[in-house]
């Protein structure tokens, strides 16, 4: 049995966007804080810390997850993807990110990291989504700036582009 004591830090080994990573966490440390403060991956944002706003959305072993409702110690041995993994190179945006930029699908950008992760995951499984599916997906996120319409447009355009380049660059 593995029992981690409340006042001790335990090692956490995982992969972050394909690269192996490691840190230490007390059991109560949230994955959001672990990623941001220990690992230094500040792309994942923190809004509500109770699963409602979607700013912290990432994938763990291929499933969408709220990082604020996940303990750092739970990702031991898991594959984590965050917004930092979306761009093909440090100076290039992915297809979805470029569509967001073209359509002004972000203003302050607070919600954007989580929305990009949801859409990235969703578009892989649903290459030809309709507007209502995109809106249903976005119901798991709060954006205080855009009114969502530009996000929907960017997502639909990115879906078409991604389908066209299928087999090529993803992102």
């Amino acid at each position: 049995m593995s029992r981690l004591a409340s006042d001790r830090r335990a090692p956490v080994r995982f992969t972050l966007n394909g690269a192996s990573a490691e840190g230490e966490a007390e059991p109560r440390l949230l994955l959001t804080d672990f990623l941001r403060h220990q690992i230094g991956a500040t792309g994942t944002h923190v809004g509500c810390e109770h699963g409602v706003c979607g700013a912290c959305t990432i994938t763990i072993d291929g499933h969408l997850a709220r990082a604020c409702l996940t303990l750092a110690v739970q990702i031991e041995g898991c594959a984590v993807r965050t917004v930092e993994g979306l761009a093909p190179a440090p100076d290039r945006l992915g297809t979805l990110q470029s569509a967001f930029r073209r359509h002004h699908a972000l203003q302050c950008g607070f919600c954007t990291a989580g929305i990009l992760m949801s859409l990235d995951h969703f578009l892989r499984e649903h290459p030809a989504p309709g507007e209502s599916e995109i809106r249903d997906l976005l119901s798991g996120h709060l954006c205080r700036c855009t009114g969502y319409t530009p996000i929907v447009r960017a997502a639909l355009e990115a879906a078409v582009e991604l389908a066209r380049n299928a087999g090529g660059e993803k992102g």
Partner: peptide, 21 residues
């Protein structure tokens, strides 16, 4: 909005989980 401290048990069998409970 951070949890209070707790021990964390990663159960490896149902019996183990029931034992801790």
């Amino acid at each position: 909005m951070k949890p209070a401290a707790f021990d964390y048990v990663r159960a490896e069998s149902l019996d183990e989980a029931l034992g801790v409970l």
